[in-house]
Amino acid sequence: MRPLRLSTAALSAAALLLTAASTTASAHGHDTTTHTPGTEFADGFETPVVPPPAPFTTHPGGQTAGPWAVGGHSVDVSSDRLWDAAEGSQSLDLNGTTSGSVSQQIPTHPLISYVVSFELAGNPAWAPALKTGELRVDGVPVKTFSFDVTGRGFRNMGYVRQTAVFTSPLKNSVTLTFASTSPGPGGPVIDDVRIRSCLLVLCPHVA
Rank of each mutant, 00 (worst) to 15 (best):
V50Y: 10
S168I: 02
E119P: 03
S197K: 11
T64M: 14
A127W: 01
T57L: 13
V77C: 02
D138M: 05
G62H: 06
G187R: 06
L11N: 14
P124V: 05
A25H: 11
L135W: 12
A9F: 12
P188V: 02
R2N: 07
D138C: 07
L4N: 07
G151K: 03
S89P: 04
A21R: 15
F41K: 11
T36C: 08
H205A: 14
F178K: 10
I106L: 09
E46K: 03
L199N: 06
L130I: 14
L135M: 02
S79Q: 12
D93H: 04
G71M: 05
Y114T: 09
G133S: 01
H28F: 05
P60E: 15
V77F: 00
S117M: 04
S180A: 12
A9T: 15
R152N: 13
H30S: 01
T47Y: 03
A69G: 11
T150E: 08
S103W: 14
K171Q: 03
W83L: 10
R194V: 01
L6V: 00
S91D: 14
R81Y: 09
Y114A: 06
N156V: 03
P183A: 00
A10I: 12
L18P: 02
R196Q: 07
C203F: 10
Y159R: 08
S74V: 01
P51L: 07
P51N: 03
L199C: 03
R81C: 07
E87L: 15
L16P: 01
M1R: 08
G62V: 02
W83H: 12
A86Y: 14
M157Y: 14
R161S: 11
G133N: 08
A127N: 03
Y159G: 04
L200Y: 14
D191Y: 00
A69N: 15
L11H: 11
L120D: 04
R196V: 13
T97R: 07
L82S: 04
S182R: 07
L202N: 15
S7L: 08
V50L: 14
A13N: 13
N95A: 11
H30Q: 06
S197P: 00
F147D: 07
G88N: 09
D191L: 09
T177R: 11
F178D: 05
G153E: 08
L111W: 12
D76H: 13
S78P: 02
D31A: 06
S146P: 07
N95V: 03
P3I: 05
W126T: 10
T150Y: 12
S197W: 00
A13D: 05
L94M: 13
S180N: 10
A65E: 09
N156Y: 11
S99D: 00
D76G: 00
N172Y: 03
H35L: 15
N123I: 00
P55I: 11
T150K: 11
P169Q: 08
K171Y: 09
G38K: 12
S117Y: 00
F147R: 11
L18F: 04
A42G: 03
F45A: 08
P53L: 05
D93L: 06
S173C: 10
H28E: 05
A179I: 13
S101N: 08
L130A: 15
T175Q: 02
T39H: 05
S182F: 04
S79N: 13
P185A: 15
P60D: 12
V165N: 10
T177D: 04
A21T: 09
Q104F: 10
S79W: 09
S168H: 06
P188H: 14
A14W: 01
P188W: 09
G122N: 14
